[in-house]
Simulated scan of single mutants.
Amino acid sequence: MHLLKRFILGLLILAVIGVTLVFNLENQQSTSLVFLGFSAPAFPISVIVCITFIVGLVLGPLLVQLFKRRPRSK
C-alpha cells in the first residue's frame, strides 16, 4: 500500500511538472506591465503568472497566520 501511494504521488508530481512545462512553452509572448504609472520590463507571460502564483503561495499562509484569531484566556 505504501508503494502504491508513493507511485501515485510520483505520477502527480510528474503531471504537475508536465503541465507547468507546457504552460511555459505555450506562453512565451513578451509583455510589460504598467501599474500606477510604473512600467515593468517586458517578460514572457508565463514568467509573470508563475511569479504571481509563487507570491500568492507565500503571502496566503502569512496572512492567515497574521489574522488568525487566538482564543482569549479568561
Rank of each mutant, 00 (worst) to 15 (best):
1 M>H: 04
2 H>C: 03
2 H>F: 15
2 H>Q: 11
3 L>F: 09
3 L>V: 13
4 L>W: 14
4 L>D: 12
4 L>G: 04
4 L>F: 12
5 K>G: 06
5 K>E: 08
5 K>S: 12
6 R>G: 11
7 F>L: 08
7 F>P: 00
7 F>Q: 05
8 I>C: 12
10 G>C: 03
10 G>W: 04
11 L>C: 12
12 L>R: 00
15 A>M: 14
16 V>Y: 09
16 V>A: 05
16 V>D: 00
16 V>N: 02
17 I>V: 15
17 I>M: 11
17 I>R: 02
18 G>C: 06
19 V>K: 07
20 T>V: 12
21 L>N: 06
22 V>S: 08
22 V>C: 11
23 F>M: 04
23 F>A: 08
23 F>T: 03
23 F>D: 02
23 F>K: 00
24 N>A: 14
24 N>F: 15
24 N>I: 07
24 N>L: 06
25 L>I: 06
25 L>K: 02
26 E>N: 05
26 E>R: 08
27 N>W: 05
28 Q>S: 03
28 Q>I: 06
30 S>L: 08
30 S>T: 05
30 S>E: 07
31 T>F: 11
32 S>G: 14
33 L>S: 02
34 V>C: 02
35 F>W: 10
36 L>S: 12
36 L>I: 13
37 G>W: 06
37 G>M: 10
38 F>S: 10
39 S>A: 13
42 A>N: 02
42 A>G: 05
43 F>G: 01
43 F>L: 13
43 F>P: 03
44 P>C: 03
45 I>S: 01
45 I>Y: 00
47 V>C: 00
47 V>S: 01
48 I>F: 05
48 I>D: 00
48 I>M: 04
49 V>A: 14
49 V>M: 03
51 I>C: 13
51 I>K: 04
52 T>D: 09
53 F>S: 01
53 F>H: 01
53 F>Y: 07
54 I>P: 00
56 G>N: 09
56 G>I: 08
57 L>F: 14
58 V>K: 01
58 V>F: 15
59 L>D: 12
59 L>W: 15
59 L>V: 14
60 G>I: 05
61 P>I: 07
63 L>H: 07
63 L>V: 12
64 V>Y: 15
68 K>Q: 09
68 K>V: 13
69 R>G: 09
70 R>A: 12
72 R>N: 13
74 K>C: 13
74 K>L: 14
74 K>T: 15
